[in-house]
Design a protein around this nucleic acid. Structure first.
Length: 586
RNA sequence: GCGCUUGUAGCUCAGCUGGAUAGAGCAUCGGCCUUCUAAGCCGAGGGUCACAGGUUCGACUCCUGUCAAGCGCACCA
């Protein structure tokens, strides 16, 4: 419909050009909007106001001439000038009714499009370090990332969802060492657990499992373990030196193979937990990409070689530096430390090189907002690798600040004191959790009140939308109970009887769904879909309270049933896209 | 100090590429169940869109500055 109006307006503009009212070199961008209010018709354009200046005319006068030049069309009932010079279009309701049969024909496919033309898009999200279970902070990234991916795929992009597994580096060594120490405690060794170790219960569980399987294979007396280790912080030492000493001790006492065993069982255990957690949350990945693989298969060396060949690498103070400041970063970055170890950033360069090599048209990284300072250096790396950094989109998700009522909840993975995503799901249900996370713009700071979200009663808008769906199902059940049959053909013939204000509003709302999907997808804003569903539900509830559907007049009854079935279909399509359930009773 | 993000009703937030009288939910107040689920509906009150300039026919929206909040400025990941 929008396109139709656009072409009509274009014809009008051309006519005015021929009449020399408008300069012939003028090629205005015609924009058609949905009218905000029914009194302004269905669609509106600001074209006259845009052209007023170049045409040196009063906008309203120009609007009159434009309207006169618009060819008549069956679908357009009338065209009006309003306000400072808006041109409002009133669409023939008969044209609007078609949307209902269209929705019934399309069913679950209604709203999907091939807008993306099969372009390959990779969405990488969550990618939390596998050092512990996901907490509620990761939940937002998970819900947002998967919603963005699902939206893109709904509008015709070929989407690959990926989790980057940081299975290398110091944090993982701390994890392995923490597990080993807990294991030693299981064996009966007595010592003070390092302040910088991971203290969560899950560490002990992993240790217990290892102990059960292998008994004392990894055991060493604590005197040997702690001999000559730098003191921990409470003893007046340095917690970082203390833990690093213990890591080295674990590696030497255990040897490469046994240390790797512990490391690996910790990683496997936690990663499979994360995988299951996400899957239960409706988040599934096509790819789990290992950082260690990049190190092992020489990708990092290859990436650094490419940077060096392109002249972006130099040596200083025993370390290798990437000259990222020449490419928009605020300073240069170390890629290989003076001890010969490559940095996390070096892995990331290799990782993005790998992404580029896989031939994606678009790479989307979803990061926590605390990583925003990291964006320029990754862009710099992409440019240095000879790639177009426009292929990269980084979407930042602000942290959800947790409250329990008025009180702010402090969280730390290290100390093991945090609310896990799993706990949240169990308390609120996955539906409410997803809805809540995605309801807000991603870059908006978000207060997540656990008390509110876990209070299962009212207040949670997810119920509002689901309730609309359940109500429609209930109406259809009533038909059965009254031994009535829905006659959709009869309804179809009588759609023109739908003239109540709520009915007209619903028709226009239903027709908007595909536009909303496209906009939500291309702007990476799933909350727009949520808002749409809330509005659709609100209009339905309003309709429900104002009018009866199951009535004596079979024609009107079936017309209304066709309408609410279309509403049910769209609610269902939208909720399913967001991986939120569509209950038939509540 | 520099950078990124944010600032809209008492609270939590929407506001589509700049458009017509800035909207919802919660909270407050008043109505609606002998009729398809009251987890609902109808109505009322509540706003200097942080502040000050600028661009524009038109600014919550774009630009500049100020103020405030969060985050980031490692040879950590």
């Amino acid at each position: 419909m929008k396109q139709k109006l656009e072409s009509l307006l274009l014809l009008a503009v051309n006519t005015l050009k021929e009449e020399a009212i408008l300069a012939s070199d003028l090629s205005p961008k015609i924009s058609i909007e949905r009218a905000r209010d029914q009194q302004y018709g269905d669609f509106a354009t600001n074209l006259a106001m845009m052209l007023a200046k170049p045409a040196k005319m009063n906008p309203r006068q120009l609007a009159e001439k434009l309207i006169a030049a618009i060819p008549s069309d069956d679908a357009v009932l009338k065209v009006e000038i309003a306000g400072p010079g808006f041109i409002n279009f009133f669409i023939d309701p008969n044209a609007q009714y078609q949307i209902i049969s269209h929705i019934h024909e399309q069913g679950a496919k209604y709203g999907l499009s091939d807008f993306g033309q099969g372009k390959k898009v990779q969405v990488e999200f969550v990618s939390a370090n596998p050092t512990g279970p996901l907490h509620v902070g990761h939940g937002r990234g998970a819900a947002y990332g998967s919603a963005v991916a699902d939206l893109l795929s709904a509008v015709g992009f070929e989407v690959e969802r990926e989790y980057y597994v940081n299975d290398a580096g110091r944090q993982m060594d701390i994890l392995a060492t923490s597990i080993w120490l807990r294991y030693l405690e299981e064996c009966g060794e007595v010592f003070t657990f390092p302040i910088n170790g991971y203290k969560g219960d899950y560490i002990r569980e992993i240790a217990v499992a290892i102990h059960k399987e292998s008994s004392n294979e990894y055991r060493h007396p604590q005197e040997l373990v702690f001999e000559d280790i730098h003191l921990d912080e409470p003893q007046g030492g340095d917690k970082e030196l203390h833990i690093d000493g213990l890591i080295d001790r674990a590696k030497t006492l255990l040897g490469k193979t046994l240390y790797r065993d512990i490391f690996q069982s910790g990683l496997d255990d936690i990663l499979s937990d994360i995988r299951q957690d996400l899957s239960e949350f409706g988040v599934d990945y096509q790819q789990w990409f290992s950082e260690r693989q990049l190190m092992d298969d020489g990708s990092i060396d290859e990436a650094l070689k490419r940077l060096r060949d392109a002249g972006h690498i130099y040596e200083k103070e025993g370390a290798l530096w990437f000259a990222s400041s020449e490419l928009g970063d605020e300073k240069d970055r170390v890629v290989v430390r003076d001890n010969g170890q490559s940095t996390y950033f070096a892995s990331d360069i290799a990782y993005h090189m790998n992404k580029l090599d896989r031939g994606f048209d678009q790479i989307i990284n979803i990061w926590g907002a605390d990583h925003h300072g990291y964006v320029p250096r990754v862009r710099a790396a992409m440019q240095a690798l000879g790639a177009d950094d426009k292929k990269l989109t980084v979407l930042l998700v602000q942290f959800a600040v947790l409250y329990r009522g008025e009180e702010r909840v402090q969280m730390s993975t290290r100390s093991g004191s945090f609310v896990t995503l799993r706990q949240l799901r169990q308390e609120t249900g996955a539906d409410a959790a997803r809805f809540f996370y995605v309801m807000r713009k991603s870059e908006q700071h978000m207060d997540f009140d656990l008390k509110l979200a876990t209070s299962k009663t009212n207040e949670n808008p997810v119920f509002y939308v689901q309730y609309a769906h359940a109500r429609i199902c209930s109406v259809l059940r009533q038909l059965d109970e009254k031994s009535l049959q829905r006659d959709s053909a009869l309804g179809h013939e009588n759609l023109a009887m739908l003239t109540e204000s709520q009915e007209v509003a619903l028709l226009s709302r239903l027709a908007r769904y595909p536009e909303i999907l496209e906009r939500a997808a291309t702007h990476y804003e799933p909350h727009q879909l949520i808002n749409y569903l809330r509005e659709l539900a609100a209009e339905f509830h309003s309709y429900y309270n104002a009018h009866q559907f199951i009535i004596e007049d079979a024609k009107l009854c079936n017309a209304r049933l066709n309408l609410i079935c279309a509403v049910k279909q769209v609610l269902s399509n939208g909720l399913k896209l967001l991986k939120i359930s569509t209950p038939e009773t509540m």
